[in-house]
């Protein structure tokens, strides 16, 4: 009997606790709208601060995607020495390597014909006595080996072959692109940390002002037996809500910026024969940004309240 009574008492206590928490949450959110201008400015400031690393993340992510797009079609051209009459043996040898998907052999005649067709120097090539082009093997890599390391390994080995005169690949360009993307990723982290600190400073300062403006109320609550936890709660909710709204603003700003850039970037990459489409913030990324914003808001207000609440005594 005592057990049932105790369980019922604990359950009703928990319900009261949750109800009180919900009321404080609603009230804290409503209080944000009271000095409407100030609260909106704070949320917008947080939004812009969070949007900067988010935007940079989207840009580097897109460059990264572009690089991967290239990698899925990785290929290397092997220009053979002039005295190779038939590359079939070499082709068969290379074809047995696991990283190779297929190898197209381009004869000197085919090469010259392609040169005339695409280079715009058809007349100049007519002046040549003999075809200067060697046999060329166009090596296509399998999808899982279309990465810089595998391609570079193959190039190093191919360059040692006596039948190979010259090796051409875009791997160097890709290496540079990857380095740029890596710098971009690092920059995103650095910016995210710095601007995350800025968000903490913005919210903690807002909460500090809110505490100062409610000094009298805090004194009264302490006098009638309010715990620090009770007093802290509305400020924590306020910080959480500001951070969350700031994150939503950041998602909106990032999306607007990406949409504004979509058409010119699609046009630009189209000029290079790519059908690549700009990718915006995914739902997961937006969720991470939301969690980050609200989490930072919570941490900032917790820190600020912890610092300033102990100074207020009745």
């Amino acid at each position: 009997m005592m057990g049932i009574w105790w369980t019922a008492r604990r359950t009703s206590g928990l319900i009261n606790y949750l109800k009180n928490n919900f009321r404080v949450f609603v009230r804290s959110t409503a209080q944000l709208t009271r000095p409407a201008g100030g609260a909106i400015m704070t949320v917008v400031a947080i939004g812009i601060t969070l949007a900067l690393p988010a935007l940079l993340y989207v840009v580097t992510d897109n460059i990264d995607q572009l690089g991967r797009n290239w990698e899925t079609r990785a290929q290397v051209n092997l220009f053979l020495v002039k005295n190779v009459e038939n590359p079939a043996a070499l082709q068969a040898r290379l074809q047995s390597l696991k990283e190779i998907d297929r190898i197209d052999a381009v004869s000197p005649d085919q090469g010259l014909s392609d040169f005339k067709k695409y280079s715009g120097f058809a007349r100049a090539s007519d002046l040549l006595d003999a075809n200067p082009l060697p046999w060329t093997l166009v090596v296509h890599f399998t999808r899982e080996h279309s990465n810089i390391e595998a391609v570079q390994r193959f190039i190093d080995r191919a360059a040692q072959l006596p039948e190979v005169d010259n090796v051409r690949s875009d791997v160097l360009w890709l290496k540079r692109l990857t380095a740029v993307v890596e710098i971009g990723h690092r920059l995103v982290w650095v910016l995210a940390i710095l601007l995350g600190l800025a968000v903490v400073v913005i919210i903690s300062n807002t909460v500090r002002l809110a505490i100062l403006s409610r000094t009298h109320e805090i004194e009264v609550i302490k006098l009638i037996g309010g715990t620090d936890r009770f007093i802290r709660r509305p400020f924590l909710y306020q910080g959480f809500v500001q951070g969350a709204l700031g994150a939503v603003t950041a998602v909106l700003l990032t999306t607007i910026c990406i949409e504004a850039l979509r058409e010119p970037i699609t046009g630009l990459v189209g000029e290079y024969g790519s059908g690549y489409r700009l990718v915006g913030l995914s739902w997961t990324n937006a969720g991470v940004l939301f969690a980050l914003g609200s989490g930072l808001g919570w941490v900032a207000s917790r820190w600020s309240v912890g610092r300033h609440l102990k100074d207020i005594e009745p």
């Binding site: 009261n16 009321r23 009298h216 109320e217 009264v220 609550i221 037996g225 309010g226 009770f230």
Partner: peptide
Amino acid sequence: HKLLPEQTVFENVALPLVVSGYSP
């Protein structure tokens, strides 16, 4: 008095109950 001017009479009087965790 130390009343909270932005809160109604009801809210002022209810404050100790809220603080002490009485049932709403």
